[in-house]
Nucleic acid binder design. Structure first.
Lengths: 210, 210
DNA sequence: GTCTATACAGAGATAGAC
DNA sequence: GTCTATCTCTGTATAGAC
């Protein structure tokens, strides 16, 4: 079946190029914003002619949409630990660890997401109203259960979740400011570990879980 | 001295127009980003012809610079409470209150600031390296003193400050997401109060100050 | 001091050769 | 599937009348 092989090969090229473009786009959108990013810049960074971007992604907005969705998926998987844990200490501890790791490994994605939400979520609004709303409601119920069981102090679950998002994503979104205050150097492994421990310790102690 | 009166009158018009333009610019830059904002949009919102903007602010970048500096000044004044307090409970409590109030009253400014930092602080970098660095070092020393005096647990002052910034500014920067998760309605007075109390309570308890 | 008309540059998108 | 050349539109900025 030679037809199959040709399709496979063609698919491989497509997959390779789309991945290169998406990675470049994530970086450029993060650093320049949607309006400041240009297809030319993304093309140069991806090492492809500008017209090829329009071949794989018809419009700039379509490309942007893909980038935002990609990040959203990563956020969601970070919360898997939440459900499998017996209580707040394990769940929130693992969640903070996971989100801090993502802030370190995907700083561009985090910034694109932040920018999208700050501008009123023009392309991801439907996800906020469906997927994110359900995810949040589920985790809020779980936290409320822990409160009812006396495993933590009576904290409003939503505000706790906002606090977890804010503190962990801050290390990506405001990474430049943190780096500047760190003498112009990125946080070292030791400093990242300290950040994680500090965040976990303040929050877990703060909600009366430890 | 008729000359003086003319200058005063001219100054009044200028002041009025500059204020209108700055307010409109803050909103447009927050909602569209620097690249997405257009002088036409800002002019329309300010109720002035586009050319007038270029009369008062030679370039788009100069106008943006003024907006960012304005916000930076507001941040700084919010911390006055920090120095006059006898210990962490009063200082951090008042600081959180002040920053939460600003998140509510100046959400656009907060977003412009966040966007500026996320993009590598192209226009405010010198302020980060001078004013903000000194401010941070001073407050970090104060926090360390409280630790040494046994008024709170041994927390890294810098990470505590990042946490304070992250949690308070989150209510402005991610206000749209919070609103969506709140059923599409902005937080009520009661909810804002609950947010403030929750943030203060978790952090103050988390650092062992109460 | 204010506004209309316009110059000039840059960006998104596409046509059509290879 | 890939790339060059180009079209078109929008945005910043300015010149010059009032």
């Amino acid at each position: 079946m030679p037809e199959g092989e040709r399709i496979t090969k063609r698919g491989a090229i497509r997959q390779e190029n789309e991945a290169r473009i998406l990675a470049a786009a994530e970086k450029v959108f993060a650093e320049a914003g949607f309006g400041g990013a240009t297809m030319q810049l993304i093309a140069d960074m991806a090492g492809l002619p500008k017209a090829n971007l329009h071949y794989y992604f018809p419009t700039k907005e379509e490309l942007y949409r893909k980038v935002v969705r990609q990040i959203f998926e990563i956020w969601l998987h970070a919360a898997d630990s939440f459900d499998e844990a017996p209580g707040p200490v394990e769940a929130i501890g693992a969640y903070v660890d996971a989100k801090m790791e993502i802030s370190r490994s995907h700083p561009f994605g985090s910034k694109v997401w932040a920018s999208e939400v700050m501008h009123g979520a023009p392309v991801i609004q439907d996800y906020l109203e469906t997927t994110l709303r359900e995810w949040t409601a589920g985790r809020a119920r779980l936290i409320q259960k822990w409160v009812d069981e006396g495993k933590m102090a009576p904290i409003d679950p939503h505000h706790l979740l906002y606090m977890l998002w804010a503190t962990t994503q801050h290390y990506a979104d405001f990474g430049h400011q943190i780096e500047t205050l760190n003498g112009g150097r990125p946080l070292s492994d030791r400093q990242w570990k300290a950040a994680k421990e500090t965040v976990k310790s303040i929050i877990l102690r703060g909600i009366g879980a430890i």
